[in-house]
Design a protein around this nucleic acid. Structure first.
Lengths: 241, 241
DNA sequence: CGAAGCGTTGAGTATAATCAATTCTGGTGG
DNA sequence: CCACCAGAATTGATTATACTCAACGCTTCG
């Protein structure tokens, strides 16, 4: 029953049922584990030893810092997420990863990936699906930042995050632990910390979202989804491609 | 010398030198060509017959429309770009494609792709590189919309577009034909048409970018790059992975 | 000629950023 | 135990940025 401490397995199972072979390969792939404390760069040792990581425990984020010191967070990463697949092929990955909490990651080499692709094609397809989904998340994020107002955008993001967490077995569906600061969230949503703070207060007052003491709660998740126009289509939860 | 009317070949060559085999496969892959007039949806016939396209001539864009009628353009597509690779695996591609000019596309089936991956692995790697690059473009776009001011954002996007065009042999390096309306550009950059119009006027007055009559010109491209903090790292022009 | 699409401009408003402080918390060391 | 500190959250006042509403000029096209 390795399933239930392995967020990645859970996530991939949402796409395709995995047999013993796949579970075994998945475990193998995640054998080189590393613990990293919160607030540290991931994988920035030698540019040559570039590789991908699987986030097993804790939260991280990918971001880009601009000349003026501001930063845009591309995506918040939760257990079961890949980090750095893009940079495997693209020489100049122009952004970085930092841990938001203490984490455990598994380092994945290109060779291990290649091996996995050949011996467990079913798993390979599931991986590609996950990669597509991650890209769809970025696209949705772009849409949010470009065209949604601050209230809508904030609530939408927190809903999406809740859905992602639920998929890997975290949270209750209308609430979850959320160990990130307002500064991190504001850099994700493309606004000032101060402004986000006011937005969060409004959302609390309206009774749509309560973000407090490391917890996110939706008093009326139906109404919140309606308010933000949240559809989980692009998360693609249902089985079958 | 098929090279020089094939934007895709040019683009991939920037990553890896292609031999006769690869050129042949590339031609094969693009044999099913279709002409589409400007302002039309691409590939929205039957959801079942989903597939990818290679844009051979003309411009298009991918976008998502929101409930309130507004839209966010994810990316502007120029010759040599793929359309719809994401949606091959992800059942619910939540966005659409529309042509901005008359175009010629080549329809690519999953089978043809698979065949190409097996018989021309060099080409396969180049394809994956291109896909990674496209994703990096979206990421950069997100950063722009989230953290750059309107002036900077607009100039940055036009510079990037120029670099992409130059790679496939269009434009002179500091000017290019740009057949898109201000409405399209503003939906790309996440602002109002009206506001974009004023921004463009300012950019013209400062002498950074001139966007006029379907042409984009940079009177002093060095200064423009400096102003916007433009780096072409993520476009990854140089040969070698 | 009128209609439609695109670009342009002005005036007023809304939204979000900036500057400046204050509170609250958990940790640290005396 | 308390004083102190740093980080995070919060509030107010002011300014800047971008949106809305309303028009008008220009071109193209039927």
């Amino acid at each position: 029953m390795e399933h239930f401490d392995d967020a990645l397995a859970r996530k991939l199972e949402a796409f395709e049922r995995l047999g013993d072979l796949e579970m075994e390969k998945l475990r193998e792939l995640q054998s080189k584990r590393v613990q990293i404390a919160g607030g540290n760069e991931i994988g920035y040792q030698a540019a040559s030893a570039r590789g991908a990581y699987i986030l097993r425990r804790g939260w991280a984020c990918s971001y880009k810092r601009l000349r003026d010191g501001s930063r845009q967070i591309i995506d918040i990463h939760i257990p079961g997420d890949f980090l750095g697949v893009r940079s495997l092929l693209l020489r100049s990955s122009n952004y970085s990863f930092i841990t938001l909490t203490d984490v455990e990651v598994a380092k994945v080499t290109v060779e291990a990936l290649r091996e996995m692709f050949q011996t467990a094609p079913k798993l390979a397809v599931a991986f590609l699906w996950a990669a597509s989904r991650d890209e769809a998340l970025v696209v949705e994020h772009l849409v949010s930042v470009g065209r949604r107002g601050a209230l809508e955008r904030t609530a939408h993001f927190l809903l999406e995050l809740g859905a992602r967490l639920h998929l890997i077995g975290c949270g209750t569906g209308d609430s979850y632990e959320c160990p990130i600061s307002q500064a991190v969230l504001s850099d994700t949503l493309g606004m000032t910390t101060i402004h986000l703070n006011r937005v969060l207060r409004q959302l609390r007052e309206i009774g749509l979202v309560v973000f407090r003491e490391g917890m996110v709660k939706f008093p009326d998740i139906q109404r919140a989804a309606e308010f933000t126009g949240f559809e989980l289509g692009y998360l693609d939860h249902s089985r079958r491609s």
